[in-house]
């Protein structure tokens, strides 16, 4: 009574693990959804609406509801983070300064989780390149156990978080792709922290918050504490762990 599938899409690998269903058609719909998101939001694709928006070529018809939803949410996040999380001020692979990838990945996983839940599936786990959404319990009927990748070692975990879904876990780090998180205010790569993990109800927010805390550095922990329901754990370059107090509930 379970379905498991791995799909390489959106420049990463997405693991779909549905425990209390064997609905293959649902998996196909999720896969289709992620490919659709890739088509629309990829800044690597010359003809994607996102590339066209960045170049100022997009017409009003191209601004679909889902694009507008993402753009509005990105603006709110830019205000909230005092310009640290600003998708309009990032070097994009297509040569423009517009790259909403930092929000789109988490957002698309959140939407996928909603699609699964709408089908009445209670126990599942989605993992899109490290952005994790959990619901219910695992196959042993226990709380889900989420390992947080060790910053220096892809094969090992630095910490394990436990929790019953719905729960989202997102991690930002520099261990791959070099220093990919840029602080728009200073325009330089952030290196103070090795990785930031944010836990909370929505993966869309958790992912964006993890990116933001990473860009803010240690100050980001205080900023995150202002957000109801979200907790953060930070691993510094000298391999120390700092966490918001509520993180203890997941350990």
């Amino acid at each position: 009574m379970s379905v498991h599938h791995v799909e390489a899409v959106m420049g990463t690998s997405i693991s779909i693990d549905l425990v209390d269903t064997h609905d293959r058609a649902l998996v196909d719909r999720l896969v289709e959804w992620f490919h659709h998101v890739d088509e629309v939001f990829s800044p690597y694709k010359e003809t994607s609406p996102i590339t066209r928006i960045g170049r100022g070529e997009a017409t009003d018809e191209e601004l679909t509801d889902e694009i507008l939803e993402v753009l509005e949410r990105c603006d709110e996040l830019a205000d909230d983070s005092d310009g640290v999380f600003d998708v309009w001020n990032l070097p994009s692979p297509n040569g423009t300064r517009f790259d909403p990838c930092g929000y789109v990945k988490g957002w698309s996983v959140q939407r996928a989780a909603e699609m699964v839940a709408a089908e009445g599936v209670r126990d599942f786990c989605l993992n899109a390149g490290g952005d994790v959404v959990l619901s219910g319990r695992n196959r042993e009927g226990e709380e889900w156990r989420v390992g947080v990748r060790h910053p220096h070692d892809a094969q090992h975990v630095a910490l394990v978080l436990h929790g019953e879904g719905p729960l989202a876990v997102a991690t930002s780090g520099t261990y791959e792709r070099g220093a990919h998180i840029v602080d728009p205010r200073r325009g330089e790569a952030v290196t103070e922290l090795a990785s930031v993990t944010v836990v909370g109800p929505s993966i869309a927010e958790a992912d964006a918050y993890a990116t933001t805390v990473f860009a803010m550095g240690l100050d980001g922990l205080e900023w995150l504490a202002r957000h109801e329901g979200y907790e953060a754990a930070v691993i510094t370059h000298d391999m120390r762990l700092l966490a918001t107090p509520g993180m203890a509930a997941y350990r």
Partner: peptide, 21 residues
């Protein structure tokens, strides 16, 4: 470290193959 899944950005498909996930 018996975990069900791993959080931690695997950005590329190549680094995915090297990951615990």
């Amino acid at each position: 470290a018996d975990v069900d899944t791993v959080s931690g950005a695997t950005y590329t498909s190549r680094s995915y193959t090297e990951s615990l996930q």
